[in-house]
Design a protein around this nucleic acid. Structure first.
Lengths: 230, 230
DNA sequence: GAGCAAATACTCTATTTCGAGTAATCGAGT
DNA sequence: ACTCGATTACTCGAAATAGAGTATTTGCTC
């Protein structure tokens, strides 16, 4: 299991709210939403209530009161404990100081992109660039509005961070597209040839049993690490 | 539920392997590991076997044979179906062309960083920069080795992508640190003052009930959206 | 004052995910 | 020939997650 007994980042957001003042879970959810935190921390009811329960079980928060108005569902108000404050500060410190291994979907896509022909990949990545530019522009517009409302940067860093990452992604993908187009991208020729053969009815399995024979000397790397004399 | 009946990216990796040739699950896992794909796609046995089962249930793969050697556990060899090939190509196309909303831990951290005093945040982010530089250098060394082995770029794009993102992160965080230090970062003064009051025993709750009174005119934004005349 | 959409405040359950556990076999050394 | 660690190949159950569903109340219009 993870080092923290409650691992979901939503738990950190809960601690953050309760560090300000006692609240009931639904109030936490609306507070986070109002402040735009659901942009950076995944929030859904199922997780919220189980995370709150887990925090309580581990003594990081306690119920302060349960009240009801009329026949409505009970509202349970929670408050943070000393241990909870400590956990909040320690966890936040870790998030800020220590880069974590994260798995993004583009990384997954890039790592398997050899499965599609290069021209198709170029087309798809080009489309991504368009999408990225659109999103970047809409983030910039939203940032403008926030700035005009006098919202200080401390409340919008996350979105500036996302903007910076998306900008870097756009630059990277643009470059990759350009280099596949010019075949400057390492391996493009073998990659293209392989999909041409496949389009002509030769299975990948067959190609892979004798890569050099089908694709030429450059395909030597495709040979499994050790299939010696048989 | 997600648009795809099997949503785990590991399922895409499975389809990718079976698109090359039939394999049994354990062989899939070692293949992915050998090729370094576990760097970009989370792989663990529990998920692997349930994902394979789900793919089979939905007709994207079928069992080709189950064999056993001696008293060892059965090896079930799977092969991809036509529907599976289609799903593979469509899914991969989507990953490459469409930016997805992802939740990174730094984004979560930044969005809650006001909960720690600015000097502490500076210290932590500085530490992160050190860590980032170390990781970048080790990625560069690994890239060097791969290049010398003649491994073409098509097999290492993912890691170049990660390198580009980490570089952008380093630049962003470095800039934020610099600007908090110089108090050029919007909101720094109120932020610092708030933690000073808190260190002197005033609770956040108390501060937030009258932000302007405690923190000055600049703290007007901290007032909830609508607590009118009461 | 009747009707109806939105907001309030959760609950429930089907999946998914995780990773430790198991059990057999292989190979290298003594 | 035997032992000991690595590898092979999966199983299992606890825990986390997602998000649809429920039931009440409020506010607004006509």
């Amino acid at each position: 299991m993870s080092r923290r007994r409650v691992a979901n980042p939503l738990a950190l957001a809960v601690l953050s709210c309760l560090n300000e003042r006692p609240m009931h879970p639904y109030e936490i959810s609306t507070t986070l939403r109002e402040r735009g935190k659901e942009q950076s921390i995944k929030l859904n009811y199922g997780s919220l209530y189980s995370v709150v329960e887990a925090l309580q079980k581990h003594g990081l928060i306690t119920t302060r009161a349960t009240m009801r108005a009329g026949r409505r569902p009970e509202r349970t108000v929670y408050e943070i404990t000393t241990a909870g404050v400590e956990e909040f500060e320690d966890w936040l410190a870790e998030l800020l100081s220590t880069p974590m291994r994260e798995f993004t979907s583009l990384e997954a896509g890039l790592s398997l992109m050899a499965g599609l022909p290069p021209d198709e990949v170029v087309r798809l990545l080009d489309k991504r660039c368009d999408n990225l530019r659109i999103e970047l522009r809409s983030m910039e517009a939203a940032g403008q509005v926030a700035a005009e409302m006098g919202l200080p940067e401390i409340f919008t860093v996350e979105s500036h961070y996302r903007h910076a990452l998306l900008t870097a992604e756009l630059a990277f993908v643009t470059d990759v597209v350009k280099r596949i187009r010019s075949a400057e991208f390492g391996g493009t020729k073998v990659w293209r040839r392989m999909h041409e053969l496949h389009a002509n009815g030769i299975s990948f399995e067959e190609i892979m049993t004798d890569p050099v024979g089908h694709l030429g000397e450059e395909a030597r790397i495709l040979q499994g690490p050790d299939q010696p004399h048989t």
